[in-house]
Design a binder for these strands. Structure first.
Length: 257
DNA sequence: ATGTCTGGTCCCACCAGA
């Protein structure tokens, strides 16, 4: 079973790129973030034409997440629990082919410090609480998406330039490590313990051409799923396509059981 | 500080967010 995550940065503007990648990479499940489209503007027909079912949580202008799957999708949770007042579309959970798939778009949090950073840390605290419940489930679980966190210095092209950024501040890294300490396996880091791997290159200053990237899109596997991890990688070349997202798709393969 | 993109509003050029 091949599971992918891809921050598309606007599903309307990136639809040709998304469809091309889906055909080429053919994941069984794809978690998408930053749809930047209201609920009624999701391009369901084009996605169904490639053989996928889909659930999505849209939002006007910003955010928005979706789960596409070649298997049946049984939606479990819509919206991150823990704050009734949080209306941002950043979290979906679904049971697919015996695996609980959680798709998230963690807040960026810049500028930091400030209210956006406070929102990020609050969201992170709720995620840690939700993840604790998920980890102990009897079923295999993966939490994947755009975490907006570089976990270690190996995950940033120039760590010293990012120490005050919301994606790399000590509080942010501490929250990610608190999450990992529940027992989760960072799948890509597990497969490539020492390699420099990036999943995002910003649009400024030819970042992709210079390989000035960040690793911020992750797969966390619980104890029931981690032993089934067989492969994974980044579809880096997709970042080089015309009209592409600033993220590249990332994927893992897990064995049947 | 800068840089590049998208979507949205309000008009034909800006702004916010990332």
């Amino acid at each position: 079973m091949k599971i992918a995550t891809y921050n598309v940065n606007g599903i309307s503007a990136r639809l040709p790129v998304l469809l091309r990648w889906l055909e080429e990479s053919a994941p069984d499940v794809a978690c998408l973030q930053e749809l930047k489209a209201p609920q009624e503007r999701f391009p369901l027909e084009a996605i169904e034409a490639l053989g996928y079912k889909a659930i999505w949580h849209g939002q006007k202008s910003w955010n928005g997440v979706a789960i596409l799957s070649k298997y049946e999708i049984e939606e479990v949770t819509r919206g991150l629990p823990g704050d009734e007042e949080d209306l941002q579309s950043r979290y979906l959970e679904a049971m697919i082919n015996g695996v609980l798939i959680c798709c998230l778009y963690l807040p960026n949090g810049n500028p930091a410090p400030g209210p956006k950073f406070d929102y990020k840390l609050g969201w992170f605290a709720r995620l840690i609480s939700q993840a604790k419940t998920l980890y102990d489930k009897e079923v295999p679980v993966v939490i994947t998406g755009d975490y907006n966190v570089m976990p270690t210095e190996l995950d940033v092209y120039k760590p010293e330039r990012w120490v005050d950024d919301a994606l790399f501040r000590p509080e942010t890294r501490a929250a990610f490590h608190e999450l990992l300490a529940q027992g989760w396996t960072d799948a890509i880091r597990k497969l490539y313990p020492d390699q420099v791997i990036y999943t995002f290159w910003d649009y400024f200053r030819n970042a992709y051409g210079r390989d000035a990237g960040l690793r911020i899109d992750h797969f966390l596997l619980n104890g029931r799923l981690a032993p089934r991890l067989i492969n994974g990688g980044v579809d880096k070349h997709v970042r080089g396509w015309e009209k592409t997202s600033d993220h590249a798709p990332v994927w893992i393969e897990i064995s049947k059981d």
